[in-house]
């Protein structure tokens, strides 16, 4: 029980600071799950990102995966509820004040001003994960191919990840 309360509390906190789209979760969850509590190994964390891209839901489904590791099905359920609780409540609040907020320029401008820091964090996450988990020429070739495919074609992340998994499987990566 104590562990579940802890999960709920951690994900609630993450839910409150989860600004600027799902990708900011990667540095935050990496820090908390891998470095601070060591609930996940780095490899498991990256695999969790891949799995969360296989669902139609947001990248935040990564919370379900991490919760599942820390506390089974109930852990996953609690993590999911608590990470989405703050944004759902905030959105209900906004929706109820919708007519007034239509005209609030300060809110929108300040939010735009804050986004570049989010980008820096996301880039740093790619850098940190890359320096610790990419080793061989093969890894960098896949990284390059993945980047080109995702950047210049309309292929969905799910398809690209499934394709990369198939490559690893059929070429017997070890």
């Amino acid at each position: 029980m104590a562990a579940l309360f802890k999960l709920a509390w951690i994900f609630l906190k993450i839910g409150f600071i989860f600004f600027g789209g799902g990708y900011v979760l990667i540095p935050l969850l990496h820090r908390i799950m891998v470095e601070q509590y060591q609930w996940l190994a780095l490899r498991e964390f990256l695999d969790g990102v891949a799995l969360s891209q296989l669902t139609p839901g947001p990248l935040a489904m990564l919370a379900t995966f991490t919760g599942f590791k820390a506390g089974g099905f109930v852990g996953g359920l609690i993590s999911t509820i608590f990470i989405f609780l703050p944004c759902t409540l905030l959105m209900l609040f906004f929706s109820s004040r919708y007519e007034k907020l239509r005209n609030m320029e300060l809110v929108k401008a300040a939010l735009d001003g804050f986004l570049p820091a989010v980008i820096g964090l996301v880039a740093a996450a790619a850098y940190n994960l890359g320096t610790t988990s990419l080793g061989s020429v093969r890894d960098f070739a896949l990284l390059g191919a993945g980047f080109v495919t995702l950047q210049f074609t309309k292929a969905s992340p799910m398809l690209v990840i499934l394709g990369a998994g198939a490559i690893g499987y059929f070429l017997h990566f070890s």
Binding site: G21, Y23, I26, R43, L46, D47, V49, A50, Q53, I119, V122, A123, A125, A126, L129, G130, S133, L134, D139, F140, L142, L143, G144, A145, G146, F147, L150, Q151, P157, V160, I161, A164, G165, A166, I167, G168, Y169, L171, H172, F173, S174
Partner: peptide, 20 residues
């Protein structure tokens, strides 16, 4: 394990694309 070794670099590519 082999399949996930293949997805690993692509996950990082995905993050880079998001940042770009």
């Amino acid at each position: 394990q082999a399949a996930l070794k293949g997805t690993n670099p692509v996950v990082i590519a995905l993050i880079v694309v998001a940042a770009v």
